[in-house]
Design a protein around this nucleic acid. Structure first.
Lengths: 359, 359
DNA sequence: CCGGTTTAGCAAACCGGTTTAGGCGACGCT
DNA sequence: AGCGTCGCCTAAACCGGTTTGCTAAACCGG
């Protein structure tokens, strides 16, 4: 008997009923003491509080969620494994923006990623009031699942759906700026380093981020009368080694660009490294433009010319929009597109004169 | 009437009772259909399932948590704001390790950080089965709060408590290696760049990570008969600008070290930058050793000699230990200390001969 | 001393599931 | 025919809170 008591005392956390009976009041009174102290006589309230305190009582958050019908936390949904997300500086900055907005509004953060291979299962388990989905293409069935579950969702870096709120960045315009910058420096021979997540097969999503950036490159080049043959487009995952491999592949296949358009800063840095290994100087022989403007771009050597996008602000805005929707504001689906801009640093310069002949 | 119905249909998600009555069975049957289909006749089970499907029914995760008494998610607790955590590459790698172990065990991830300034409140709200606390010193009252709440917890990078499971790294040993490396290269004049989180005042925690590293430095220097005066220890936050400022402070105060012992890679890189700005060459005039071995160290120019610690593995181990505890294994509090090692790269070299005289 | 208004606190319903303890009819066996 | 067993399903209790009436006592003015 006594042993059981002790075990229970150690193992079971006190419930509201325990506090109620210990204080000689009803559960209601205890609840009031915490949530609407005004409805109790002042000394009753404080007595209940002190009893609760000595018992070590904390209202059970799950029970609370159930009755209140909300969790006060929001989910970040990514199709990649979380390990990849956390290691990636781009997501680091994005998540920082998310965190700022969430903390300001008093929401906790919950990460939803494929659980045992199934995003669907993970979504089903998630106790969140709403979701910010990152990098989800329209063909992901989860989008439909979440909508049917009635979970408010804001899409980011995804193929936009007309009736789904989203925060985007002007990828196409940014890409155009990058290409125009190089064209303006006299470059005529290009290689494009495209990116694709390693896990997904459908790199063909016509509305995905890579497709939009490619359209921008193409538009600027076409305007200058420059052709971009298929073999000048090489795809890898968005990492430094990936970029190095892509550049190597193009170069070793005999292509002789004077400029590289990279869809991410990481691939750009990888390309610079591979170029240097082949005895080329950046920007003397080859100019490189990245995309995103993560920290890496500033610290690279030479500092990387790149397209800046407001990564953290994108996260912030997405959360703000989501919270507005949760609050019942924002009746219409809202789409917002943030601007991009060129940041010229040291990795781009004039096209070498007679580069081809000197070869 | 009809309007109300429609509104409900849109707004209210179907509950288990809705499914039950639609399928003409009891709630129990519906529950069984999802959780223990074997207890139902095969065609009953599939009929219920299809009814549930057309209704768009998903078991409510919060209700489930309440009855099952567990959330299947674990919390990462940090005293810093999440924005800082996510931007920091160290945490990025750590979290990646955490994510690997959590995903493997089918646990979701929940981040707990001061909510409206109060870590206590955030902990109270958190629906998690257990917590991995990072960089919490013993004087944080939250440690006690969590223990009283009966929430299993594993401490990481914290001042170890004897009865609390923890995963540590051999900070002192690593620091000793760093100092011995420099001593072995002939250095006799040192500056130590210590680190302290900007928010916390109590940089005095005698068991905190900085204190442990300082002990290691001191031990190695003392063994070589080298004094480390107080003014040779400068503190900043663990960022590149912080390190640059620290080095500048020491140098401009007239100190003329030939070697810098930095407690983080970021401060080390900052110091290298500040040194170069003063016309010093690294490692020609000044050698620099960092700590942690984050990606930055490899990519810095010159590549940074540093103390490697298994950051991601620390996260993985912490989660594994936590999950073992949740599973009822691991009766005794467990402490684990992972090894550190020196990674010699290009930022360290022999002490300059007659450096002082040439000045 | 009475009727009306506060005030303080309670019982019970509810949130949306899971789980225990049976109930009921069909079947097999003797 | 009687009885035990099994297969299939259900009623009701439960998880730990919040919230909605409602009641009984205290208070108040006339």
């Amino acid at each position: 008997m006594r042993v059981d008591d002790r075990v229970n005392q150690l193992v079971r956390r006190p419930t509201i009923s325990d506090v109620a009976s210990a204080a000689g009041v009803s559960k209601t009174a205890v609840s009031f003491a915490f949530n609407q102290p005004g409805r109790l006589a002042p000394n009753t309230a404080s007595r209940i509080r002190s009893v609760a305190d000595t018992l070590g009582y904390r209202p059970h958050p799950v029970a609370r969620m159930l009755t209140q019908g909300r969790t006060r936390s929001i989910g970040i949904l990514t199709p990649q494994a979380l390990a990849i997300v956390f290691e990636n500086p781009y997501f680091g900055t994005f998540n920082a923006g998310v965190a700022v907005a969430a903390e300001a509004a008093g929401y906790a953060l919950h990460f939803i990623s494929p659980l045992q291979g199934s995003l669907a299962r993970a979504v089903g388990r998630a106790t969140v009031d709403g979701v910010v989905a990152v990098g989800l293409s329209a063909d992901h069935p989860e989008v439909e699942q979440i909508r049917r579950a009635g979970l408010p969702m804001v899409l980011v870096d995804s193929s936009a759906l007309p009736d789904q709120p989203s925060i985007e960045v002007d990828d196409e315009g940014g890409a155009r700026l990058a290409a125009e910058h190089l064209v303006g420096l006299g470059h005529r021979a290009f290689v494009v380093l495209s990116i694709a997540p390693s896990e997904r097969v459908s790199g063909e999503d016509p509305d995905g981020v890579p497709a939009r950036r490619l359209r921008g490159y193409r538009a600027a080049l076409a305007a200058a009368g420059i052709a971009l043959p298929d073999e000048a487009i090489v795809t890898s995952e968005a990492t430094i080694p990936g970029g190095a491999a892509s550049f190597a592949e193009a170069w070793d296949a005999g292509q002789r660009p004077t400029a590289v358009l990279a869809m991410s800063d990481a691939t750009a840095v990888g390309a610079m490294r591979a170029a240097r290994e082949r005895g080329l100087s950046v920007p003397g022989d080859i100019s490189v433009v990245g995309f995103d403007d993560v920290d890496l771009a500033r610290f690279a050597d030479p500092a990387l010319t790149t397209i800046h996008q407001p990564i953290a602000r994108k996260g912030e805005q997405a959360v703000r929009l989501l919270i507005a929707i949760l609050g019942g504001d924002a009746a219409e689906p809202i789409h917002e597109t943030l601007a991009t801009r060129l940041v010229a640093r040291a990795s781009t310069g004039p096209a070498p004169i007679d580069r081809r002949r000197a070869d």
